[in-house]
Design a protein around this nucleic acid. Structure first.
Lengths: 374, 374
DNA sequence: GCTCGTGCTGCAAAGGTTTGCAGCGAAGAA
DNA sequence: TTCTTCGCTGCAAACCTTTGCAGCACGAGC
């Protein structure tokens, strides 16, 4: 039913190539012809078929964004930032959700592969080797994971976890639990590694709880375990789990931060709305989205080898840089002195100004994170 | 760089049509040939180009889902449900976010048009006539809006608003504010209409505040207005605004529900986490997602007229049914007796069992909503 | 021995677009 | 007048698949 270029050509009495040029290279066609063609096109409701165009140009002007769980409020700022950046470069973003499922992830990459010029793989659950394999089918930038030979943008959660543990140590905590995230998460491994090292060097004991689904429910489900383990502080894989845990502890009659201190990771908007407000490791989510788009599109303007047109797609011959963005501990109300440590609570911290206050959420802070190697 | 069907044909010494059949109609090719072809394909990492396939079959097996604001927690359950339903039918869902912007919305429909078999337009901000226009380019199902001649699925927010107002009237409130949502929202109009009627027939005064952006910030920004207006209860366009408003009132020293009662709409997960827990109109979000996918794909199995292949796409000749799903008032802790009304608070309601307790979030409750007309 | 059916494969058109090249007419230069 | 140049347009190949039709070889039935 929709009109094709041929219909427009017929209606305006010119060759299809002239119609094509009317849209993609207007300066090459006689003004009079142009207006006539445009009129006919308007009349017939003609829109160039982007799929057909992509078939020959090798450019779709779309990018795919694959997300582990769209319901996790961690992602929307990243998505929005990516979309904004893409829009500047005249690209559209298609988002797909994998439900934390590795095989769905792979399937979606294939589904998207030829409809986009590249894919942003955000917090992938696939194995590294599988990522490498799919990256041969379509240009990929990985977010929240380092995989050798591929362009990546990660947050320095190691540093964040270290700061969190040090913060807890400073409050007198010596028995700390790490509420682990999902299996297959790079972030999870990094946090575990860094938190373990920091605890050890601070003379504290670190109990590992997990893996768990990275959701409120996943956090809440471990409340009983936390109580039984007798720890006085918990570092959670993310804010959602931290919030769920606080709820769970509450139902068990444990108060936060009086009985147990809780630290999250991500600094989602929600962490400012719950009571107590959450102490958390802020990650530059928006900056990550922007950076990833830039990396994917960095060779966009380069002339592409014509002939065979067969899409040496965007980002081909890309320098496989790896970028690490800085994180920052934001101290709010969910952490306090360890019970029985004799310390008193440092006055109502709650985001007062000071070294820990976060400058500009998702702003340049993170974007300046140094590029690393390769 | 990626292998094409031609490469596989060359490598396995058969014609490309045989390779094609190996994938799309295996029973038509000799088992020996088949294994040889499959081996070569595997070897070369060949994947059929879905864009090229779509060009000729007229089916992409993708559906587009256009969302006003992906950061609004109202949408993820709908997205997830749509994805699940689509997956059953062997479809993938591509999500796009419009940032509440009508023109971005239109642009995205065009970007998606030829890459998907149909589009779910969720809470559109476009004008009805524009929706009608784009629906000529690609099959569309509209969610959260009724537009004549197009298949729609809406929630009965009118009924919900009525229940909410009646609930407030029952608590003795006589001066109520309606915290309006974004311009161009069908839901907003429905709520206003129904709430206005209910208030009038209950002898209450309804103050309109808005339009506002449907976010926490948008809600919080009206806190001062709410105080000044002297109302004792507020019905907000959605939960996010309700929560933002509660925060804002809190900062002005007004307590909820002691000083002001607040009701939201949507019953997002967050509304159970804030203090006080939010009284709200639960909408069957997941059911809406599922239903919309079903409506879009209902003629999927029908044989398609071959010849010209030009995609009398999915859902063509669709019966343009309009479905309305039921809503339900969920009473939690953000509503109480009007100050000075002499009434006392009915004991700790908070989701106890009873007529208002919600059965199964997004479950069959809503899915059974009756089909209506046309 | 001939016909027919069956099982497999090749041929070529079709789908909607872009783009290098060639052609054409007119205007300007020699 | 003849040769260029220039501005515009048409031609046809190419992108990667799918699919109706035809062709081929072979075995069975008469």
């Amino acid at each position: 039913m929709p009109a094709t270029i041929r219909d427009v050509a017929r209606a305006s009495g010119v060759h299809i190539s002239t119609v094509s040029r009317t849209f993609s290279a207007p300066h090459l066609v006689n003004p009079e012809t142009r207006v006539r063609v445009l009129a006919c096109a308007e009349d017939l409701g003609y829109r160039p078929n982007r799929a057909a165009r992509a078939l020959i140009t090798g450019r779709t002007h779309n990018i795919g964004l694959i997300i582990a769980d769209i319901a996790n409020p961690f992602f929307p700022p990243l998505i929005k930032a990516a979309e904004g950046q893409a829009r500047h470069r005249d690209y559209h973003v298609f988002v797909a959700d994998t439900n934390e499922d590795a095989s769905a992830e792979e399937e979606l990459v294939h589904a998207l592969a030829k409809q986009v010029d590249g894919v942003l793989l955000c917090s992938p659950r696939m194995s590294n080797s599988l990522i490498e394999q799919v990256s041969r089918e379509v240009p990929v930038v990985v977010i929240n994971r380092q995989v050798a030979g591929l362009p990546c943008v990660v947050m320095d959660v190691g540093q964040g976890a270290r700061s969190a543990i040090e913060h807890l140590l400073g409050l007198g905590h010596r028995r700390i639990a790490l509420l682990g995230g999902p299996r297959g998460s790079w972030t999870n491994r990094e946090i575990r590694r860094a938190a373990g090292a920091a605890a050890r060097s601070g003379g504290a004991e670190l109990t590992l709880l997990g893996p768990n689904p990275p959701t409120e429910t996943g956090g809440g489900a471990q409340a009983e375990q936390v109580r039984r383990s007798g720890v006085t502080a918990v570092l959670a894989y993310n804010d959602l789990m931290a919030i769920g845990l606080i709820e769970g502890l509450d139902q068990l009659g444990l108060r936060v931060p009086e009985d147990v201190s809780v630290v999250g990771v991500d600094d989602i908007a929600l962490s400012r709305l719950t009571r107590p407000k959450l102490t958390t490791v802020a990650t530059p989510t928006a900056a990550a989205g922007r950076t990833a788009v830039d990396m994917l599109l960095q060779h966009d303007s380069e002339p592409r080898p014509r002939g065979g047109g067969r899409a040496a797609a965007v980002g081909d011959r890309r320098t496989t840089a790896q970028v690490m963005l800085q994180t920052e501990l934001v101290i709010r109300d969910s952490t306090g002195p360890a019970p029985g440590s004799g310390r008193t609570r440092p006055g109502g911290t709650s985001e007062g100004p000071g070294p820990h206050r976060r400058a500009d959420p998702g702003g340049p802070t993170g974007a300046t994170g140094g590029a690393v190697a390769s």
